[in-house]
Design a protein around this nucleic acid. Structure first.
Lengths: 149, 149
DNA sequence: CTAAATTGATTGCAATTGCAACTAAACAAT
DNA sequence: ATTGTTTAGTTGCAATTGCAATCAATTTAG
């Protein structure tokens, strides 16, 4: 609750912001340079590929990729237009729709991962040794829990 | 150059992404709830307030806040429409323009900082002790340097 | 059972972003 | 001086986002 920010914490915050945008820009640039779609597409394809039956309800995708419902609808539209997934009627809940990854979607996922993984290594992981990586993940994890007072 | 990502590094990366968006969303929500402008406005106001004469060339702002030129032009337009800064003709370079922060801009900066600082503490800094904060800043700093092979 | 409330997904619309021109001024080089 | 190049800033346009409203289906409650 104390609204006081030490200089060290303030600095950490600023470096965090800068690091995030520069790393993301590098990775997005690498994808674009390889004429591959943006990371948001990867996220959806990845979630689907991990899902039972390689399909998932739209609202679950939204939650998994931290996107609003409406943005998910449209993102899924784009992937569908590109043939990377199809929509499937949901038996049992007639409101609902599944997104199902296609073979093209799976191969796109792989092609993107080649570039994406290299980017993560180059711009991010390279700068952390194994124990730092573990510690780092732990810290980031704390920030995603419900806030207290 | 080794394009191999360990499980620990991969996890760290994912937590990084999630932490960033959740923390940012919280802070933006807090600002919006206080009927304050988004963080992008704060960044510009802050840069100006730190600048000699409280003014800065547009391309310098762009660089400082990691934004493209065109987006900076339009962001500055919005702040100008809101009366938080003014444009000033640049003597010595007739192409150029300064953005100069106004008194309203300065007071907006302060009002935003109240909410922003609380957000940084609540969603970010709270989760780091002093030594972690220093270590964290150091790591983030490595990621913003020029990449090597 | 029926009305009210909730949930899943989509749509409209305004605001923001990204990218590629474009204009004008400065700089460089012959 | 004259041409070519770079730099500053802006603009057009298409794509993406954010938010509120909408519609239909499901669940809840009386």
């Amino acid at each position: 609750m104390s609204p006081y920010l030490s200089a060290a914490h303030n600095l950490a915050w600023r470096k965090f912001l800068v690091a995030y945008v520069t790393v993301m820009e590098h990775i997005e640039q690498d994808l674009a340079a390889a004429t591959l779609p943006p990371l948001s597409w990867y996220d959806v394809l990845f979630v689907l590929s991990e899902s039972p039956g390689q399909k998932r309800r739209l609202h679950e995708i939204a939650e998994a990729v931290l996107l609003s419902r409406s943005n998910t609808t449209r993102l899924v539209n784009r992937l569908e237009s590109a043939g990377l997934l199809t929509r499937e009627q949901c038996s049992g809940d007639r409101r609902g729709a599944f997104a199902v990854i296609t073979d093209d979607g799976l191969s796109m996922l792989e092609r993107m991962w080649v570039v994406y993984e290299a980017g993560i290594v180059n711009y991010f992981a390279q700068h952390l040794d194994a124990s730092e990586a573990k510690q780092f993940a732990k810290i980031m994890n704390r920030m995603t829990s419900i806030r207290d007072s």
